[in-house]
Amino acid sequence: MAYFLELLISGALTGLMYSLVALGFVLIYKSAGVPNLAQGALVMTAGYAVWMVMAWGLNVWIAIPVAAAIMFGFGLIVERLLLRRMVGQPVIMVVMLTLGLEILLRGLVPGILGSTPKPIDLGIDFAPIIIGDVFINRTSLYGGIAALALVGASLLFFRTRLGTKLRAVSDDHVSSWAVGISVERAIGISWGLAGIAAVVAGALWGSSQGADWTLSMLLFPAVAVVILGGVDSVPGVVVGGILVGVLGTVIPGYLDSFAGGSTRDVVTSLIILLTIMVRPFGIFGREDIERI
């Protein structure tokens, strides 16, 4: 039972750390309708950015905001230079563009900054929090808290004036234009926000494994999270994250000893497949997906 509980908790926390990656995806999809498959690479870039700023000798608590500023700007630039020119193109073009960006970043960032894993020391204590026989990983815990905080902040943000504009944009581009909202600016900001979310994800994930290109592989579980939660739902990120994390931890936790291999990728794949089969728009997504 304690084993199950531990798997449950660590799974939920891990899932919330996926949510950090997924949040950026949802923010962009919600406002621009762009499925950003480069979000993993954005997290990697953010991880490198945090490392780089820390390498300048800055304290981690200063480094993260500085990196966030850098990534916000980076998001704006990406949107301005690339995505804005793709408006009206079929989804395959947009998907492929973000994949191209992902590949480009995966070459560019390690190519310039070096490909060996870069340490990011957030100063988080190694000792687990022990409740009974349940060990809770502090990095995951802080990651989970950060994810919840970011999602909460996003939700609050959507209540602000700017956030309302973003919501309007996400509802209908043309109408938003009509009432004088700068759709481009709104979409740009959502890219910037996705950059900030990537910094938190990059810093936390980077602190446990080092920042290198493998951070970009977080995309896959993040995709499972957004599909499950709904591609345009911010709260869906939390629920989807927890579900993906728990299923991806609990099931392999019991199954691996029989299947003789890690089943997490299988679970993640199945989550994506089943969701798409049963409820393509996810748990909280809007049911406007075109179906036969």
């Binding site: 084993y3 531990e6 798997l7 660590s10 799974g11 891990t14 750390m17 060990f135 990983n137 995951s140 994930w205 446990s208 494994q209 493998t214 951070l215 592989m217 977080l218 991806g248 931890t249 609990v250 392999p252 936790g253 691996d256 000893s257 003789g260 291999g261 890690s262 997490r264 990728d265």
Partner: peptide
């Protein structure tokens, strides 16, 4: 001995290590 595999690239191994501890 017992083998505890984790998924590639291994950036997240919580489940495996929970088992190992037990």
């Amino acid at each position: 001995f017992q083998a505890f595999p984790y998924a590639s690239p291994g950036n997240e191994q919580a489940a495996a290590w929970s088992e190992v501890r037990r």
